[in-house]
Design a protein around this nucleic acid. Structure first.
Lengths: 193, 193
DNA sequence: CTAGGGTGTTACCGGTCTGTAACTTCTAGA
DNA sequence: TCTAGAAGTTACAGACCGGTAACACCCTAG
C-alpha cells in the first residue's frame, strides 16, 4: 500500500492530511472524495460526519496548509532571533528549497485558478490567507530596515508566485531557476537606496 | 441570447473561439463539451467530427491563444519599428493593460495548474509555447542592448506570471498593482549596468 | 456488563461527464 | 435539379461525481 498517512490517528486527521496531499498533487477537481477516503483508510460517510461538504474540506485543507507555512516563519525567528535581515535571506533560501523539492506550486494559488467561480466559498479564505502572508513579508522587510518595504515585499511575492507557476508550465530549468539570484539582487538594490 | 460568437462562421471556428473563451473564464475542468457546443450554437457530434477529443480541443485552444498573443508582438514592431527598447516598454505597458482588463490570468499557466497529470498531452504543448514566448522576450531584451538579457527576460517573465496568478488569489489591489513600477525600475537598473 | 458514540459497510440517488451510433436535415456545387 | 458531404438531432453507453440512508460493528467509559 502507498499508505503511511494511515497510521492510527483519528480519521478526521487522516482525511485532512490525505486530502491536503492529494489536492496538492492532483488538483482539487482532479480528486474525488471517494479517492481521498480510500487513501486515508476510511470511508465517505466518516468524511461527511466531519466535514459539511467537499468545499468545507477544501477550506480546512487550505487553512491547514497555511498553518504549516506559518510554522516555517517561526523557524526563521528561531534561527536568527532578532536579525530580521538574516530572516529575510532565510526566507529566500527556504523558498528556493521548496521550489526545488516540489513542482506543484502554491496550494492557495492553484485553488484560486481551479475554483474560478467568483462566489466560491474558498475564494475569500484564499484571499484572507494570502493577505496575511503578504503582511508578514511586508513587516519582515520593514523590520529589516528597508525603505520601500511594501514594494520589495510585493516584488518578492510576485517573483515567488511566478516561479511556482512557471515551474508547472515550463519546468525547473525555466526562468524559476534564477529565483535566488533575482531575489538576492533585488534585496541588495533596495538596501542600497 | 448571449451569443455573438455565433455569427455564421464555420462550426469549427465557432467551437474553437467559444471554447477558448469558456476555458479561459471557467477553467478547463469547469467546462463540459456540451456547454461549449451549446454556446457555440452547434452540437456535440459536430465537435467530435472536428476534434479527436476534448484534450485535442484543449490543445488547439492553447495554440490559438498563443497565436493571438504572438500577433500582439507584431504590433510592437509596427508601432516602434527597429526601436527594440521602445518595444520592451510597450511590452510592459501592454502586459499591464491586459492585467487590468482581465483577472483570469494566462491560459497556458492555468492549464498547467489544472492538468496536473504529468503525461497529459497538453503539457508538452504548453511547454513548447511558453519556451517560444521566453525566447522572444530574451531576444527583445538582447536586441534592446541589455547586457544580462536572459536574466532580465526571466525576471520580467516571473513578475508577470506572478502578477497574473496573484490577481486570481488576492485581487487587483494586491501586489500585482505595482507591476509596471517593478518592471520599469528593473529595466532601468539592468540598463544601468 | 452495558450503553452509546464513533466508525465501517453497502447500497443508492440524481446529476454530470466524455464519447458514440443512427438517423435526418440542410446546403453548396455540378 | 440532383447529389454528396457537412451539420443537426436524439438517444444512449459507461463512468464518475457529491452526498445520503440504513444498518452493523467495535471500543471505551461508566
Amino acid at each position: 500500500m502507498t499508505d503511511g498517512v494511515v497510521e492510527r490517528s483519528r480519521p478526521r486527521d487522516r482525511i485532512l492530511e490525505t486530502a491536503q496531499d492529494m489536492f496538492h498533487k492532483h488538483g482539487i477537481k482532479g480528486v474525488g472524495v471517494d479517492a481521498i477516503t480510500e487513501a486515508a483508510g476510511t470511508n465517505k460517510m466518516t468524511l461527511y460526519r466531519h466535514f459539511e461538504s467537499k468545499d468545507d474540506l477544501i477550506i480546512e485543507c487550505l487553512r491547514a496548509t497555511a498553518a504549516k507555512a506559518s510554522r516555517i516563519w517561526d523557524e526563521f525567528e528561531a534561527e536568527h532571533p532578532g536579525d530580521k535581515l538574516a530572516q529575510l535571506h532565510a526566507w529566500v533560501r527556504k523558498a528556493s528549497e521548496l521550489l526545488s523539492a516540489d513542482s506543484r506550486g502554491c496550494d492557495m494559488a492553484n485553488a484560486a485558478v481551479e475554483l474560478s467561480e467568483s462566489d466560491h466559498p474558498a475564494r475569500r479564505v484564499i484571499k484572507e490567507l494570502k493577505e496575511a502572508q503578504r503582511e508578514k513579508l511586508v513587516a519582515l522587510c520593514r523590520d529589516a530596515g528597508i525603505g520601500q518595504a511594501e514594494l520589495l515585499a510585493d516584488t518578492l511575492s510576485l517573483l515567488l508566485e511566478g516561479a511556482r507557476v512557471s515551474m508547472q508550465s515550463v519546468g525547473a530549468e525555466g526562468p524559476s531557476a534564477q529565483f535566488v539570484r533575482m531575489a538576492e539582487s533585488l534585496i541588495a538594490s533596495f538596501r542600497a537606496r
